[in-house]
């Protein structure tokens, strides 16, 4: 009994550590693939790990008060909690019957944490970035909620483990084919949550110099980079679990998550950035309509194909 608990704790810690490293490697993949699209050689895959070590090695403290510190911690904490909810490779760390909904909303926590901290920094660029970020999250809320409902209605369950179980069998059982509308909407919203083009409006480097991140340096930035990488992995894993038939063994885990990440990277490299109000009205038009369609399909046809 006691041994079980210890093994479970060890597995949890190991898993979190692994996912953190994996998140950084994913960012490395993003930079490498972007570089190849730019026709460059690009940095090695482990580059973000070096970046994080370097940021931890900065000597000066760089704090603007408690809220500022808390912001980056909340970002990382949210990402880690979200990671623990995922049933990866047969491990069920924190899963319970309603974990799908919790996961979906935990994915927004890193962005909110960054904004909380940034608002405390007092830099005008951060302020602009923060209100852009809040508007973007508000805009994403409606289609996001509808799409989540569509998925829930499709599978008639809110547990990720059961969602995976329902997708076994043939490839046509995958969520992608059962409810393509919801899959598309969640992919679009994912771009907004991950802060990449065309939705990298909160941190537009060419407009407002990284927005909320402008005052973050050193350790805070290290935490944030880690959180961002983890968010990337969590999103990719969540997407593979809900729409691509689950990740029950290491090979399918790697293949599916990297596939999702590559899609995001390709999109990010061929689209410019929207203006905030254009993004907002876009989000409330097509994704919302698609999500509604998905919901209607799920409710009308149920789980049947």
């Amino acid at each position: 009994m006691a041994l079980d608990v210890i093994v479970e704790i060890l597995a949890t810690v190991g898993m979190v550590f692994l996912l953190l490293i994996l998140g950084l490697i994913f960012m490395g993949i993003a930079r490498k693939v972007s570089a190849r699209i730019h026709r460059r050689i690009g940095p090695p895959l482990y580059q973000p790990i070096l970046d994080v070590i370097k940021l931890w090695s900065k000597i000066d403290p760089s704090s603007h008060g408690l809220t500022f510190d808390l912001g980056s911690l909340i970002a990382l904490g949210g990402a880690i909690t979200a990671a623990l909810l995922l049933p990866i490779m047969g491990l069920k760390l924190l899963s319970f019957s309603g974990d799908f909904i919790v996961l979906m909303y935990l994915m927004e926590l890193p962005a909110l944490g960054i904004m909380l901290g940034a608002a405390a920094s007092g830099n005008p660029f951060s302020a602009v970035g923060v209100y852009r970020g809040l508007i973007l999250i508000t805009g994403a809320q409606l289609p996001y909620a509808l799409a989540v409902m569509a998925v829930a209605a499709e599978y008639k369950t809110l547990s990720l483990t059961e969602i995976v179980a329902l997708q076994q069998g043939s490839i046509l059982n995958w969520g992608l084919f059962r409810n393509p509308f919801a899959a598309l909407v969640i992919a679009i919203i994912g771009l907004a949550l991950l802060d990449v083009q065309p939705f990298d409006i909160p941190s537009a480097p060419a407009e407002i110099s990284m927005g909320p991140m402008v005052e973050y340096g050193g350790k805070h930035l290290a935490l944030m980079l880690t959180a961002h990488g983890l968010e990337f992995v969590v999103f990719a894993t969540m997407y593979s679990i809900v729409f691509l038939g689950g990740v029950s063994d290491p090979i399918s885990f790697i293949v599916k998550t990297v596939f999702v990440a590559l899609l995001a990277i390709f999109i990010m490299n061929v689209y410019p950035r929207w203006r905030i109000e254009q993004a907002f009205s876009y989000l409330w038009k097509y994704p919302t309509a698609l999500a509604l369609l998905g919901l209607v399909k799920a409710v009308m046809l149920g789980g049947a194909m």
Partner: peptide
């Protein structure tokens, strides 16, 4: 290259 001074070395 980063546009933020705090992050740069």
């Amino acid at each position: 290259s980063t546009p933020s001074i705090r992050q740069a070395d």
